[in-house]
């Protein structure tokens, strides 16, 4: 595979917090139009890794490339500008804001009157509806508060927000952990749609069935290292369990 076909690469990324080496040189990559899963036990370093990619943490060592270009992010904002969006399992929408306000949070369309930035509400509502429609998400009104939405609806809104901003890479941290079976199915459909639109998706999930169902490529993390990477079609749930618990090794 040529480097340029990769949407994102992490090479030997290290990160420690005090004496804890959370990442000991993790290397992963993800292609556009594919779901790349990262699996591993609690504390394996998955979240630290994606937080490095999302600009929440700054790696101590190593390199992150987007479309082959080396990048450094000093904040989530700069990662977002570079086209990396994150959908957290619970840390995403402000319940007290309306759906359109959430979709446009910190990207508001405004008319500037001196220093006062006046919201163009009509335009944002209109575009919000378009953003939801793009992924066939149906919600009674973009004017309603997020608090009234079900978990699945919220996740759908969060996903639409991630997709709607011309992003290249969408990181999904346990996107269905808090959802019921039916809602999980809907979110999975959304993920497939995102994939069809050519996005690179990094999926963190504890649900092996989901990983096997959705992903094209899997990286296994253990104690701060990426210990295996393989095409999904070449592996099984049993093998993943063995790798995660450390009872098996694979190059």
């Amino acid at each position: 595979m040529s480097t340029t076909s990769l949407a994102i690469e992490c090479n030997a990324v290290k990160k420690s917090f005090g004496n804890v080496n959370a990442l000991k040189g993790a290397t992963i990559s993800a292609r556009p139009g594919e779901v790349t899963a990262i699996v591993g036990d609690n504390g394996a370093g998955k979240t630290t890794l994606i937080k490095c990619i999302a600009g929440v943490y700054q790696p101590d060592e190593g390199e992150i490339r987007i479309n082959g270009e080396s990048v450094t992010f000093d904040s989530p904002e700069s990662a977002r500008v570079a086209g990396i969006e994150t959908v957290y399992q619970n840390l995403s929408l402000v319940e007290d804001l309306t759906i359109w306000q959430n979709l446009f949070l910190n990207r508001e369309i405004t008319k500037n009157l001196g220093v006062v930035k006046i919201l163009n509400r009509a335009k944002m509502r209109e575009e919000s509806e378009a953003m939801l429609k793009k992924l066939d998400v149906y919600i009674p009104s973009v004017r309603s508060r997020t608090r009234g939405l079900s978990g699945g609806q919220r996740q759908a809104v969060a996903i639409c927000r991630a997709v709607g901003w011309g992003s290249k890479v969408v990181i999904m941290d346990e996107p269905t952990a808090a959802l019921g079976a039916r809602e999980t199915m809907k979110v999975e459909e959304l993920i497939k749609k995102m994939k069809a639109q050519g996005l690179a998706i990094l999926l963190i999930s504890h649900n092996f069935e989901q990983v096997l169902r959705l992903s094209d490529h899997i990286f296994v993390m253990r104690q701060g290292d990426v210990i295996a990477g393989m095409r999904t079609k070449d592996t099984t749930g049993d093998e993943l369990v063995a790798l995660i618990t450390g009872s098996a090794k694979r190059g």
């Binding site: 998955k46 957290y88 399992q89 619970n90 346990e174 952990a177 808090a178």
Partner: peptide, 8 residues
């Protein structure tokens, strides 16, 4: 490091 699921 993993985000805990929040029942709330």
């Amino acid at each position: 490091m993993d985000t805990k699921s929040n029942p709330g």
